[in-house]
Amino acid sequence: MAENQLARNFEAQVNKFKQHIYIQLNKPLIRGIIFALVIRYVCLPNKSSDYKSFLEPWYNFIVEHGGFLSLKYDFYDYTPPYIYWLIIASSLLAWLPKVISIKLISIIFDFVCAYFTYKLVRLKYPVGNMPTKAFLIVLFTPTVIYNSSLWSQCDGIYTAFLIACIYYLSMQRNSLAFICFGLGVSLKLQAMFLLPLLLIIWIKKKVSWQQFLWIPLTYLVCIFPAFLAGRPLFDLLLIYFNQSQKYKELAKGVPNLYQWIPNRYYSDVVPIGLIFTTFAILLLTYIIYQTKTKLAPDRLLHISLISVLLVPYLLPKMHQRYFYPADIVSIIFGFYFPQYYWIPIMVQICSLLSYLGTPILIKICSLALGFTLCFVIQKLQSTLNQSQDIQIHEFS
């Protein structure tokens, strides 16, 4: 009798567990995550040209030169933090196929980026399923899948830290925000696309200048293991400078201003483009400084979108992947300002078509992206003016 009762209890527990699993698997979030993982699994075998030319040779070099000790050699043109992952992949994950172990970090950060997107949208919608929708949209955005699962790129990693930076600024956890920004910069210099936002919140006295010290400090901490392995500090500090000298193209498949300028003017246009971009950033900063508007989360997000669109659109020497932060920030913008739903759609289309590399489409997309940028700036200016009018009226 006791044995029969025990068997019935066990069977009841098993059925209860099966029912729980069935309920969980039928939740949209769980189903979405599973489907997102399946898509990435299907993409894993693809080996991009960058994978064959850079990532796989770096992986092989690490294996042949003693793992961590390989860091003393100048065999990579990325900053060390990404190489640390290749060291981990070549040792702890050596049982996996190379292409999978290399791509794994980028795929993980797809989900990290989606998570901080969820957190930001949750600030706008404390109740409801909008944050979950935002989370899933990021995971199924074509450029996100393309970048990590197909191309083995790491733009999603530094972008995840930028989204985290915006989130922590919204939560007024400023030191943590600057550390996240520093981590982004330590991975890719393109994280600097968000710098105009940081300048604006500094000039609006929302953060102190001392908090900017977190950026170089974080970078130094991130390169320290490579220095410890024997690579000269001077080399480590000049990685980004050396990167900037590598490609001599005004625009490498990117839908920005320089699609319309022949590359033969490279030497003349590059310094002009740098000066013009600097002037545009300072002008934007000054315009916002002149207003008394409060930098609430929605305003921070609006400025963030302008920042990650403006800088790669005006800077020369950009690549097609450099609008990746704008892809993600525009999605969040669409949730904060649903009346402008077409903006994230436009940004995604332009970004994706630039991945396909068709020159005429890229030129058309550069016009569409320029129009989108102007529209977003104009809307910010109009809201700033309205805010000013309201404050003047209240004062009167």
Rank of each mutant, 00 (worst) to 15 (best):
A2T: 05
N4V: 01
A7Y: 00
R8S: 03
V14C: 01
V14Q: 03
Q19R: 06
H20Q: 02
I21L: 11
I30W: 02
I30E: 01
R31A: 05
V42L: 13
V42P: 00
P45I: 00
P45E: 00
S48C: 10
Y59F: 14
G66A: 07
G66K: 08
G67Y: 00
F68D: 09
L69W: 11
L71M: 14
F75A: 10
Y76F: 15
Y78R: 11
T79P: 02
S90I: 10
L92D: 04
A94R: 15
V99L: 07
V99R: 01
I102V: 14
F109I: 10
F109A: 10
C113P: 01
Y118A: 00
V121I: 13
L123Y: 00
P131E: 01
K133N: 04
A134V: 08
L136V: 02
V138F: 12
T143K: 12
T143G: 11
L150H: 08
G156V: 15
I157F: 05
F161G: 09
Y167S: 13
Y168D: 08
Q172K: 15
Q172M: 07
I179A: 05
F181G: 06
L187T: 02
K188M: 06
L189G: 14
Q190M: 14
L195C: 12
L195H: 09
K205V: 00
F212N: 05
L213G: 14
I215R: 00
V221G: 00
P225L: 04
P225F: 04
P232Y: 10
L233M: 11
D235Q: 11
L237H: 04
L238M: 14
L238V: 06
L238W: 02
L238R: 12
Q245M: 15
E249M: 14
L250S: 13
L257S: 05
W260I: 09
V269Y: 10
V270Y: 09
T278W: 03
L282A: 05
I288R: 05
Y289F: 12
Y289G: 07
Q290R: 13
T293R: 01
A296W: 02
P297H: 07
S304M: 01
L305C: 06
V308R: 09
L309A: 02
V311C: 13
Y313V: 05
L314H: 04
L315N: 06
P316W: 07
K317D: 03
R321C: 13
Y324T: 10
D327M: 09
F333R: 04
F335L: 03
Y336V: 07
Q339A: 11
Y340W: 13
P344F: 06
I349G: 08
I349W: 12
L352A: 06
L352R: 06
L353C: 04
G357F: 03
T358L: 11
T358C: 03
I360C: 01
K363D: 11
L367E: 08
F371L: 15
F375P: 01
V376R: 13
I377Q: 12
Q378V: 05
T383F: 07
T383M: 08
L384G: 11
N385D: 10
Q386H: 14
S387E: 12
I390Y: 10
